[in-house]
Amino acid sequence: MSVKPKKHLGQHFLKDENIAKKIADTLSLQDYQDVLEIGPGMGVLTKYLLEKHINVHVIELDSESVEYLKGHFLNLANRIYEADFLKCDLKSLFNDLPFAIIGNFPYNISSQIVFKTLEIRESVPEFSGMFQKEVAQRICAKEGSKTYGILSVLTQAYYRAEYLFTVPPSVFNPPPKVDSGVLKLTRKDNYKLPCDEKLFFKVVKTGFQQRRKTLRNSLKTFNLSDNLKANTIFGQRPEQLSVTQFIELTSLIEKDTNQ
């Protein structure tokens, strides 16, 4: 029995064993005992994770894949969760213990997977996975680049992002129309920001919603004082600011609105 890839779930099953092993080997396995694989399909990556000294858990929305995994990976037994990663209470699933995330992520929800991981960043010291190449490059992009945006800044505020390697369409069933890219996120040692973190998210998202405008114009809704808006940082466009400068900008706004 094999599982038929389902278009509505964005399934492209990896069939190259070498690439599956390479992705499994991206994890350092340090400072955590558990790893959660998202969307294992027929378990091509899962079997290489099971060779490591770690507790492997998998979360899969497709009931046909779940049946396949239960029949072929008896040692996973009670660690196969038929659920939607985006709606799951992961902290209670792991009793507030740290865990890594890994997967060959469905393209249609890959950005949402990163945003969800950022919400539970205190639980996730490490994250590796396969994305559409452009999305992986966007997450790892630096200031000044056209692809640098909300996803880049928010991710890199908390994690060190590394683009590892590119994967061609031919190693999937069915082949996607684009190349894929594997990246790794390693949480920074000091990942608590020295500013209001909710405000930081709001500043970054608002700034990039009108990325062609200067911050003086795109952040108008914050009702900032003329004195603050005279700061040279407000003459720049959001893609010109580094992650550190966005943190500094948030601190300036925080002080201004509290006066």
Rank of each mutant, 00 (worst) to 15 (best):
F99H: 11
A141I: 15
L118F: 10
Y148S: 09
Y158A: 07
S128A: 15
G103A: 07
S92I: 09
S128M: 08
P125V: 07
K116E: 14
Y158S: 06
S152D: 03
K91Y: 02
E143A: 07
S110F: 14
S145M: 11
V167H: 10
M130W: 04
G149S: 13
V167Y: 11
Y158K: 13
K133N: 09
E122F: 15
D96A: 11
L118W: 14
I120G: 11
N104I: 06
L93R: 08
V135D: 02
Y163F: 13
G149I: 12
T147V: 12
L164V: 12
L154S: 11
R121V: 15
F127P: 12
S145W: 03
I139R: 02
K91G: 10
N104A: 05
G149L: 07
Q112R: 14
E162A: 06
T155N: 06
F165Q: 08
I113T: 00
I113D: 03
S111E: 11
F165I: 08
I139V: 14
S123K: 05
V153S: 03
F115H: 11
E126A: 09
N108F: 07
K116S: 14
S152L: 04
V124N: 13
Q156L: 00
V153H: 03
Q132H: 00
I109E: 13
E162L: 05
I120W: 01
N95I: 03
E134V: 01
T166R: 11
S111Q: 06
I102H: 09
V153M: 03
V153C: 06
V114Q: 12
Y163E: 02
M130I: 13
T166Q: 09
Y107S: 06
V124K: 03
C140M: 03
P106M: 03
I150M: 01
D96W: 01
K133F: 04
L93T: 12
F99W: 05
V167T: 12
L93E: 12
E126Y: 04
I139N: 05
P125K: 10
L151G: 01
E119C: 04
F165H: 07
S145F: 00
T147F: 03
S110W: 09
R160M: 09
T147W: 02
R121Y: 12
T147L: 08
E122Y: 12
L93F: 08
L93A: 05
P169C: 04
G149Y: 12
